[in-house]
Design a protein around this nucleic acid. Structure first.
Lengths: 199, 199, 199, 199
DNA sequence: AATGAATGAGATTTCATTCAT
DNA sequence: GATGAATGAAATCTCATTCAT
C-alpha cells in the first residue's frame, strides 16, 4: 500500500495533532485574507474562525506572512469543465468557469490583496501566480492551441497573448464596473476572437 | 457647479489655511497609498512626507478614509497623445501611454489597493474608476470608433468590449508576470485586433 | 537672564508637555527596574505607576531599553557628606553614606539587573557605571589621597585598589549574607586600612 | 544522608527515568541561566539545549523556578589549588583561581541574576550563597588564619572581614570596568594585606 | 490654523504550563 | 516516562484620533 500523503506522516511520539485543525486554520486564513486583505486579517480573527488559539497557529506558521502564503498555496487549480471536442465551445465554458470562480470566491479582492502587498510581501503574488493564475492560463492556452489546430483561429495567432486578452477582459470589466455575469464568457470570446468564431 | 469635496468646506472666517498644504498632503497621501496600500499607509507617514502635523491632516479630512478618497480624486485623466489621423496608430500610442503610466506610477499596486479595500471602503474603487479608469476607457473607445469608421475594424465590432480586451491584456500580463515593456502596446493591439491591423 | 535648563526649552507650538510626566515616568521606571529587574519591568506597570498611558512613554522613549537607560541616567551622584578635615573620618562617613544609599534604594538589586543584562543590554551597566559607580569611586579615592597626604596611609598605597577593596567589602558582605548595617563602614575601613588607621 | 532535592523524588515503580537526561537538563539550565538571566531563559531553549522535550523538564521540575534553583545546586565548590606551605602565596593562588573561575564561567552574570531576582525568587541567591560563595569564603578564610598563625598578618586581623575585602576587590573592579586579568590576584592581595606581605 | 502631546484600542508574538497519546 | 500539541495570559509596540495651547 502506498503512502498517500499528509494524513499518513504521523510520528508515533507525542500528542497527535488535532485532525482538521490544519485545514480549519488555512481555510479561515484564506477566507479572511480575501475578505479583509492581508493587513486587516488579524491572527485573532483567524484563530476565532478556526476555533483554535493563536499560539496553535504560531506552532504551524512562524509569522503571519507564512500563514498567508500557506493559505494561498491551498488554492486549487481550476476545475476542468468537460470537453466536447469543439475547442471554441470548450473555451467559452472555460472562461465561464473562470468568471464564476472569481465571482464566487471574491477572487478580485484576493487579487487586489496580492497586488497591493507586492512591495512588502511578494510571496503572496508569487503563490497566487503559481497556484491560480498559471493553471488557468495553461488551460486556456491549450484550448486556444486546439482551436488553432482545428482551423478556428488564424495560424499565426499567439496563444499567450490571446490568453491575456481573454482573461484580461474580466479584469478590465470588473475594474470598469461593467457586468461580468451570465453570458460574459461568450461576449468576451466574441470580442477577442472576433467574427471568425461565428462565420 | 456644486461643492464636490471636503477640501472645499472651509469657513471663510478665521485664519485662512496655509495654501500649499492641501496639495502637499494629497500628493503625499497618494504616493503612500500607492506604495504601501491603504492599511499600511499611516497618517504619521503622510504628515512627515507632507511636512505638516497629523492634526493638520485631520483638520481637512475627518478620517483616514476620507483622506485616501480625496487623494484618489486628484488622479489626473490620462494625457492625450497627439493624434495622427491614423486611428490604429493613435490607438497603439494610447495603449503605450497607458502602459507607461501604470508602470511609472506603480498603478497596479494602487489598483490592488482599491480592489482589496472594496469591501471595507468602496469609495476608493469608485473614485479610481471615475478618475482613472473611465477617462482612459473613453479615450480608447473613441479611437476604436474612429478606426471602425475608417474601415479598419469590422462594422459590428463592440468598442466597449474591445476596450476591455485591450486594457485587460495589461492586467493579465502583469498578473501572470509577463513582460509589459517597450512594444507591449503593439503586441496587445495585434493580438486583440488581429491581422486586420496589418493587412 | 540665563537659560536654566530643561524647564525653559519650551517650543511655542503645540500642546505643551504635561509637566511632571517626564519625571513620573523616569521615577517609576527606576523603581520598577530596581524592584523587578529589566525583563520583569513591564511598560504597563511603568505607565500605571506614572499615571500615563503606554503610548505616552513611547512618545519619549522609542524602546523599553531606551527607557531603562534613561532611568539609570537619573541616578544622582552620591551626596557628599560634610568634611571635617580628618580624612579618615571623612572616609568612614563616605562609606557609611555608600552603604546607606545602597540599602535604602535596593541598590544591590539594581546592580544585579545591570550585571545580569550585560550580555543583552550593555547600556545598563555602562550608565550605572558612569552615574553611580564612578562618582562614588572618585569621592572615595579623593579622600584616600588626602589621607595619604596627611600621612595616615603608606606613601605607596594605591588609591584605586584601596577604593575597590573598601567598596568591595559591601558587595562581598551582601553576597555572603553578612550584616551591612550600622557600623559596617567602620569595620570595613578597619579591615582594609588596618591598624594603620588606629595607631 | 538526607534526600536533598527534586531529582531524587522518583517513584520506584513504573518505567525508570532516562538517566543522562537529568544532568543534561541541569547543565543546559545553568548555562542558559548564566548567559541569559532567569527571565530570559526559556524552557524551550533549555529543552533544545538538553535534547529533551519541555514536558520532560516539567516531569522533573514543577516550575521554572525549581529548575533554576536545582541548576544552582549543581555548582561545584571551588577547586582547591595545591598548597605550598607559604600561606600568603597559597592565598594569592586561591584568589587567582577565584578570578579565573568567575571569568571563565561568566560568574558575574550569574551573580547578577541571583541579585536581580532576590525579591521574586530568593532561593536563587540562597543556593548560590551555599554552593558558590560560602565554599570560596571558607577556603580564603582558612588561608588567612594560617597566614596569621605564621605571623604574616597582624594578630588582631579579622579573617572574615579580610575575606570580604579580598573577594570584594573583584566585584568592585568588575563593576568599575577595571581590569581583572593576569596579576589581579597579586594586586588585590597587595592592596588589602599591604606591604606586610612583601617585607 | 497649526502643532506637539496624549491616549485607547489593538496587533503580533512569546512563553510557562497542561494535555493526550 | 517521554513527547509533540495546545493554550491562556501577557508584553512590546503601533496608530488613528482627540486635546490643549
Amino acid at each position: 500500500m502506498e503512502n498517500t500523503g499528509v494524513a499518513d506522516c504521523r510520528n508515533t511520539a507525542g500528542r497527535p495533532r488535532c485532525p482538521g485543525k490544519d485545514a480549519a486554520i488555512l481555510t479561515s486564513a484564506l477566507t479572511l485574507l480575501t475578505q479583509q486583505g492581508f493587513t486587516r486579517m488579524t491572527l485573532d480573527a483567524v484563530a476565532r474562525a478556526a476555533g483554535v488559539s493563536k499560539a496553535t497557529i504560531h506552532l504551524r506558521f512562524k509569522t503571519k506572512t507564512e500563514l498567508a502564503a500557506a493559505a494561498l498555496k491551498t488554492l486549487r487549480p481550476c476545475s476542468r469543465p468537460p470537453e466536447t471536442g469543439d475547442a471554441l465551445a470548450d473555451l467559452v465554458a472555460q472562461l465561464a468557469d473562470f468568471a464564476a470562480t472569481l465571482t464566487r470566491t471574491h477572487g478580485m479582492s484576493l487579487i487586489g490583496t496580492c497586488l497591493a502587498e507586492e512591495a512588502h510581501t511578494p510571496e503572496l503574488l508569487a503563490h497566487f501566480r503559481e497556484h491560480a493564475v498559471q493553471p488557468r492560463r495553461t488551460a486556456v492556452r491549450r484550448l486556444l492551441e486546439r482551436a488553432r489546430a482545428q482551423g478556428a483561429l488564424a495560424p499565426d495567432a499567439d496563444p499567450d497573448a490571446l490568453t491575456s486578452a481573454l482573461l484580461g477582459v474580466f479584469y478590465a470589466d470588473h475594474l470598469a464596473g461593467r457586468a461580468t455575469d451570465e453570458d460574459w464568457a461568450e461576449r468576451a470570446a466574441a470580442a477577442v476572437l472576433g467574427v471568425r468564431s461565428h462565420p
